[in-house]
Amino acid sequence: MTASTATMKIGELARLTGVSARSLRYYEQQGLMHSTRSVGGQRHYAATDVSRVEVIRRLFDAGLGSKVIARLLPCVETSDLEVAEDAFVAMVGERDRLTADITRLVEARAALDELIEGNTRFRTRIEAR
């Protein structure tokens, strides 16, 4: 067996990537990666799946969902400009969504700060009685 045809079981891929076997099965269920099956039904992954899992993890860590990641992954594996453009549009859209979420969170925190300040003044007045 050559390095290019070497395969590994799910436990080894999990160990090499630090990702649980459960997460790897989820990635497969979401179409983010694929395995071959042995006669006994065991999943086998290619050595190149180590780097694929690392890319998937980074995208999840960036706050992207599996549907968006599925849209971005082909860009990693091709030099097709149309695929790269689609990935770019998806990434910009996700960044804009995150920016809007951050803005809403900052506004909510400011409103909560005002409530905390008002509550602090109220408690101070009650204690002064």
Rank of each mutant, 00 (worst) to 15 (best):
residue 51 S to P: 02
residue 31 G to N: 12
residue 68 V to T: 15
residue 28 E to I: 03
residue 88 F to L: 05
residue 102 I to T: 13
residue 25 R to H: 03
residue 98 L to I: 09
residue 55 V to E: 07
residue 37 R to H: 03
residue 92 V to Q: 14
residue 106 V to Y: 03
residue 74 P to L: 12
residue 89 V to N: 01
residue 61 D to P: 03
residue 54 E to C: 13
residue 113 D to H: 08
residue 59 L to T: 10
residue 1 M to T: 12
residue 54 E to F: 06
residue 46 A to P: 04
residue 103 T to S: 14
residue 10 I to H: 06
residue 78 T to F: 11
residue 18 G to F: 05
residue 80 D to S: 11
residue 101 D to W: 07
residue 45 Y to A: 07
residue 89 V to G: 04
residue 102 I to L: 10
residue 77 E to V: 02
residue 70 A to N: 12
residue 101 D to K: 15
residue 7 T to H: 01
residue 74 P to Q: 10
residue 37 R to W: 06
residue 63 G to K: 13
residue 60 F to C: 15
residue 28 E to W: 03
residue 96 D to Y: 00
residue 6 A to C: 11
residue 116 I to Q: 11
residue 38 S to R: 06
residue 123 R to M: 13
residue 68 V to L: 09
residue 7 T to E: 06
residue 85 E to W: 03
residue 88 F to K: 04
residue 3 A to V: 04
residue 83 V to A: 12
residue 102 I to D: 04
residue 39 V to K: 12
residue 5 T to F: 09
residue 62 A to F: 10
residue 72 L to T: 11
residue 44 H to Y: 07
residue 71 R to Y: 00
residue 113 D to V: 08
residue 101 D to I: 12
residue 16 L to V: 04
residue 33 M to L: 15
residue 93 G to S: 11
residue 121 R to N: 00
residue 113 D to E: 15
residue 36 T to P: 00
residue 2 T to Y: 08
